[in-house]
């Protein structure tokens, strides 16, 4: 059996089944959709076991040099407690796991994420204003700095948006509208690029298996 051709046919038939939804909801779409959900869940379970749990937990719990590190039983038990959420009598144990996740996540947000998402962004904005490169570059830098400051003013709700604050907020919302429009256009084009890729797959990989060459 030619596994490559079989793979192309499987991919093509499943893709066409999913595209059939553009006409209307139908059994082919539902079949492919349910298969995709099941396979994705299975894929991520295996991915987690092989790429996260075995190298980060199991290999630390039972090192290749021999012996056992009992301290690594703690995250194992906490992980188990998380799954016990589905057992009503023991579901309260999952609070311990959630507490660790939330506490660590909150601590990380306070420091590392704040540094990348706030401080580094402020730093980048300040540097942009001082860069040279002609009047156009200078004007663009002014727009970036004004846009960031006014955008933040728009999100500042502790003071009424009237007077100078209101005007700054108006500039902010204008910049935000342009940004949202750009993000929307960018997202649509990313999807269109996937559509083009899938169309090319059907036209130039699947059709040739039936002797049709475009």
């Amino acid at each position: 059996m030619n596994w490559t051709v079989l793979g192309i046919w499987l991919g093509a038939l499943l893709s066409l089944s999913l595209y059939s939804f553009l006409y209307k909801d139908n059994p082919f779409y539902k079949f492919a959709e349910h298969l995709f959900v099941g396979m994705s869940a299975g894929y991520w379970v295996i991915y987690t076991i092989k790429n996260v749990l075995i190298p980060n937990w199991w290999d630390n719990l039972v090192p290749s040099e021999g012996g056992m590190q009992p301290v690594w039983l703690i995250p194992g038990f906490l992980g188990l407690f998380m799954v016990l959420r589905v057992v009503p009598k023991l579901s309260s144990l999952s609070r311990l796991s959630l507490a660790l996740i939330v506490g660590t996540g909150a601590g990380l947000s306070m420091t590392a994420m704040f540094q990348t998402n706030a401080l580094a962004q402020v730093n980048g904005t300040i540097i942009a204003l001082g860069q040279g490169g002609g009047w156009f570059s200078w004007a663009s830098n002014i727009i970036i700095v004004t846009g960031v400051v006014c955008g933040l003013v728009y999100f500042f709700f502790s003071k009424a948006h009237t007077g100078a604050i209101g005007q700054a907020a108006n500039v902010g919302i204008t910049i935000l509208m342009v940004a949202f429009g750009a993000s929307f256009g960018y997202t649509v084009m990313a999807r269109i690029s996937l559509l083009i890729g899938q169309t090319q797959f059907l036209l130039f990989e699947w059709l040739p298996t039936m002797g049709i060459h475009l």
Binding site: N117, I144, G147, L176, V178, A179
Partner: peptide, 20 residues
Amino acid sequence: QVPNLAGQRAVMIGAAMGMV
């Protein structure tokens, strides 16, 4: 590179403040 960057940065900084 310019208005989108400014808007995204404002959102990101605002969200980071909220996150803290």
